[in-house]
Design a protein around this nucleic acid. Structure first.
Lengths: 218, 218
DNA sequence: AGATTGGATTTTGGATCCAGTATTGATTAT
DNA sequence: ATAATCAATACTGGATCCAAAATCCAATCT
């Protein structure tokens, strides 16, 4: 099972996502294909394919003969994305809970410990990644691949904002607490409780982001 | 406001969607880029970009260095897609109903009459298109652009099966009846009733498709 | 006979080049 | 001074060409 070197397209896709969600490409700004391609050391072809993927995910918009633009998520857009996530993730959790085994719970526990480890090490980026793995591991159990894909793309679209959230105050500790509360609820087979916690979590995140976005960036 | 000739990419995208949903490209089959490009009279570049879009919509899958494959929807996949549609469309209808004006209802009425006209003329294809316009007109009223995009992509993915549905027995008459029932419920501001009808409609469609897919195609 | 290896062929991935469209800026007229 | 026009420029869209990977097939070995 050897590791295949990633195609230029996959590389570009990752770099672009990072650049957009990290804000290095400003929302609303046009994407100069020549410049970006040169910057990344590839030609425009794989870049354009990566942009098409990002368009599908809603991270960039496209106008014929004018090109691609970094999609800026307004507060409304953000709220909408989180609302859709709520709908889809509730379904995923309920299905997952219905098929949950002890081994699954152990795996989720392990995933949660990785989140804690990253948190203890103060590695915000790794913590965000581990948090995502934890949630996806849970959702995967629903056995609905298409649903997972949709949820993933929503996470992609809101990635930048999620890292803002992780950077603030005691949010990291809160995440860990809530994960554990969800796991406890699942152990008790109390799905409603698990869903309730996750919803509260999302609501809190949205509220925190609203507060952050209100005040102009320093 | 002159009409711009569509780019090759847009043309290819439409043709591919049609070919896939009409079954002219068999599910599971690899997509030979050279052959398809020549068939459509374009080069491989716009074709590949169109395929990336379709990948995002889940109509084709992709493996690095192996290419694109027509995604075959199993019965399970179909059920999953319809379930997700149910979640998203319920949200759309509820939001739409909350902001519904008299003018909106008139527009929906007009859209419904187009469905009836196509039905009376026996034009199944046009009826399917008009039906889609009717539903989207309703969903649009929710004012959630991202939600609409997701719903559209789910409709795209299940297009082929929907036309099967329209071809069968008295399903066309049933569609018209249910549209009118939904409109009546919305007029009474009875959202729950509207949602209930739409859900029943989807359930019936899924059941009909299950029956159709069970028996081997003639 | 079956599995395996090596090379020929096919197909995808990526780079470069050209054409068509949009944008920019200077020039002119009001 | 401002608006409109038109040429120069920049950028996107698409075609072609080359490289790299995968597939296919025959020859070889166990």
């Amino acid at each position: 099972m050897s590791v295949r070197p990633p195609t230029a397209q996959q590389f570009v896709l990752g770099e672009l996502r990072r650049a957009i969600t990290a804000g290095r490409l400003r929302p609303g700004a046009p994407i100069r294909q020549d410049a970006v391609a040169e910057e990344l050391g590839v030609s425009r072809v794989p870049l354009r394919e990566a942009l098409k993927t990002l368009q599908g995910e809603g991270l960039v918009s496209y106008q014929a003969h004018r090109g691609y633009f970094v999609e800026s998520l307004s507060l409304d857009d953000l709220r909408e994305a989180y609302r859709i996530r709520q709908l889809l993730e509730e379904e995923a959790v309920r299905r997952a809970a219905a098929r949950l085994t002890g081994a699954d719970l152990d795996r989720l526990d392990a995933a949660e410990r990785e989140v804690e480890r990253a948190g203890a090490a103060g590695d915000v980026l790794e913590m965000a990644a581990a948090n995502r793995r934890f949630h996806m591991a849970l959702f995967e159990l629903a056995g609905m691949p298409r649903l997972i894909r949709l949820i993933q793309s929503l996470w992609d679209a809101t990635d930048a904002y999620r890292s803002m959230y992780y950077g603030e105050g005691d949010n990291r500790a809160r995440v860990v607490d809530e994960h554990n509360a969800v796991l406890a609820a699942l152990r008790k087979c109390d799905v409603d409780e698990a869903v309730r916690i996750l919803d509260a979590h999302r609501d809190h995140a949205v509220a925190a982001l609203e507060a952050l976005l209100e005040e102009p960036p320093s």
